[in-house]
Deep mutational scan, measured.
Amino acid sequence: NQASVVANQLIPINTALTLVMMRSEVVTPVGIPAEDIPRLVGMQVNRAVPLGTTLMPDMVKGYA
């Protein structure tokens, strides 16, 4: 099963992502693939992302 990117903490709206904010986990539904974590660093979320939430492509500005 493919691992997805999951929020390791509450990520406030418009926050630029850092490695410490994300972890990989096998979840359903599948979100952004864990191998894209390096690409996500520095990108901003367009909404608040609660701890444990799977990051979906539409949550990250410029990802989709």
Rank of each mutant, 00 (worst) to 15 (best):
G42Q: 06
M21Y: 06
P38H: 12
G62T: 05
A34S: 12
M21K: 04
V6T: 15
G52F: 09
R39G: 12
N14C: 06
D58R: 03
A16N: 07
T28M: 06
V41A: 07
V20H: 15
E25Y: 03
N1E: 15
P33M: 10
T53L: 07
M59Q: 05
V60I: 13
V41D: 04
S24P: 13
G62N: 09
V45T: 14
L51S: 14
T54S: 09
G31S: 03
G52Y: 10
M22N: 00
I32E: 00
P29E: 14
S4Y: 12
S24I: 07
S4L: 01
T28K: 02
D58F: 07
G62Q: 14
N8W: 07
I11K: 00
Y63M: 15
G42K: 02
V5A: 06
V5M: 02
R23M: 04
A64H: 14
M22D: 01
V27A: 10
G52T: 13
N14M: 03
T54W: 02
L51K: 07
E35V: 04
R23D: 10
R47F: 08
P33S: 12
M43S: 05
D36Y: 06
T18D: 07
A64W: 02
V27Q: 08
M43W: 07
I32M: 05
N8V: 12
G42F: 03
A16Q: 05
P50V: 15
V5N: 00
S4I: 02
A3T: 14
S4D: 00
M22R: 00
V30C: 05
S4Q: 05
R23E: 06
I37L: 12
M43P: 00
L17V: 06
I32K: 00
P29A: 12
V27S: 05
A34W: 08
Q44S: 09
P57V: 06
A3C: 14
L51F: 11
P38D: 10
N46S: 13
L40C: 03
P57M: 07
R39E: 03
I11Y: 01
A16K: 07
V45N: 02
P57K: 12
G62H: 11
V60W: 01
V26K: 02
V27K: 06
N8H: 07
S24H: 15
I13R: 04
I37H: 04
A3Y: 06
D36S: 12
V26E: 15
S24L: 10
A64D: 07
R39V: 09
Q9D: 14
P33E: 04
K61L: 14
T18N: 03
L40T: 02
R39C: 03
V6W: 03
M22I: 13
P38S: 11
E35K: 02
L10P: 08
D58K: 04
A7T: 08
M59F: 15
A34L: 12
S24M: 10
G31W: 02
I37Y: 02
M59S: 08
Q2C: 14
S4C: 02
L55R: 00
V6A: 05
A64Y: 02
I32Q: 01
L55Q: 00
P33N: 13
T54K: 04
G31R: 04
A48S: 07
M56H: 14
R23W: 13
S4V: 12
L19I: 07
G42Y: 05
S4K: 02
A16W: 07
V20D: 12
A64Q: 15
M21Q: 10
R47H: 08
N8Y: 14
P38W: 13
A64V: 09
P33W: 10
I32N: 01
P50F: 11
A64F: 02
R47D: 14
I32Y: 02
T28Y: 04
V20T: 12
A7R: 01
M43R: 12
Q2F: 13
I32V: 14
R23S: 12
L40V: 11
L55N: 00
M43E: 07
M59C: 04
T53V: 08
